[in-house]
């Protein structure tokens, strides 16, 4: 179980905002953080993996405290055992596909996981290629494979498909579901693509201005949300 209850003051182009969220995710669940850009979704992921520090609050995973401002506990990203796929994939340009995966491996961990992942992601034929010659979809698969080499408890995906076209999105969605199930991960996906959210997750948190405004199954929550965002996009005179 992931339990998050954090506050953090954020400074963006739109001004200051108070991020204030509390939520729980059950083991093996795949949930989505959905909301407009600038709502604080990425910051939540960054706080979970230790790359951003909340002003106050707690984060615990499977009973282990990862962050607690009152007790001054703040585990480093290196020991949190979280897999994350960044929006820009963040592959190491100096390493081949295989080396990118090997870099992630733990001391004493068997290398067989590398071949297993290369095969699962259909990357075996590309294993000696450098990231800059790969397509967006291929880079995405490498990033996804690399994020689970260390067999993390949690997988975090930060708008993983935002740079891909529609056909590739469906393909990558399949890969995400495949690794989520095969490695029994608890996955948190950040997205503002309604279709993606409905396809992938059974539970969604709606985030606006740094707060969770609603949560539930995407099929019941999101049609209203989609309608509202469409209405928002219309000029005021047409409403």
């Amino acid at each position: 179980m992931i339990e998050v209850s954090v506050k953090k003051r954020l400074f963006s182009a739109k001004g200051e905002m108070q991020l204030n969220v509390a939520f729980k995710v059950e083991p093996g669940e795949l949930v989505t953080l959905y909301g407009p850009s600038g709502a604080g979704k990425t910051t939540i992921l960054r706080m979970l993996c230790g790359l951003a520090v909340p002003d106050e609050g707690t984060i615990s995973v499977a009973g282990e405290t990862w962050f607690d401002s009152s007790q001054r506990i703040d585990l480093k990203p290196q020991v949190r055992n979280v897999g994350i796929v960044f929006q820009d994939y963040a592959l190491f340009p100096n390493m081949t596909v295989k080396e990118n995966l090997e870099y992630a491996i733990r001391r004493n961990q068997s290398h067989s996981v590398i071949d297993e992942l290369l095969e699962l992601m259909e990357l075996s034929s590309l294993s000696d290629k450098k990231p800059d010659v790969l397509s967006g979809g291929q880079q995405q698969r490498v990033a996804l494979a690399r994020s689970i080499v260390r067999q993390p408890k949690i997988l975090l995906l930060d708008e993983p498909m935002s740079a891909l076209d529609t056909t590739l999105r469906f393909k990558i969605q399949e890969y995400i579901l495949k690794v989520h199930q095969q490695y029994q991960l608890t996955t948190i996906l950040v997205s503002h693509d309604i279709l993606e959210v409905i396809t992938l997750s059974k539970r969604v948190f709606l985030i606006e201005h740094g707060e969770i405004v609603n949560e539930g199954p995407p099929s019941t929550l999101l049609p209203m949300q989609a309608l509202r965002s469409m209405m928002d996009a219309l000029p005021t005179s047409n409403r």
Binding site: G50, P77, Q78, F86, A90, F92, Y103, A104, R146, R150
Partner: peptide
Amino acid sequence: SIIEASYTLGKGRLTTLVRV
């Protein structure tokens, strides 16, 4: 993000400096 990716993959600052 490349530096952060290295940290989340369990690598410290020195390893990140030398290898990435």
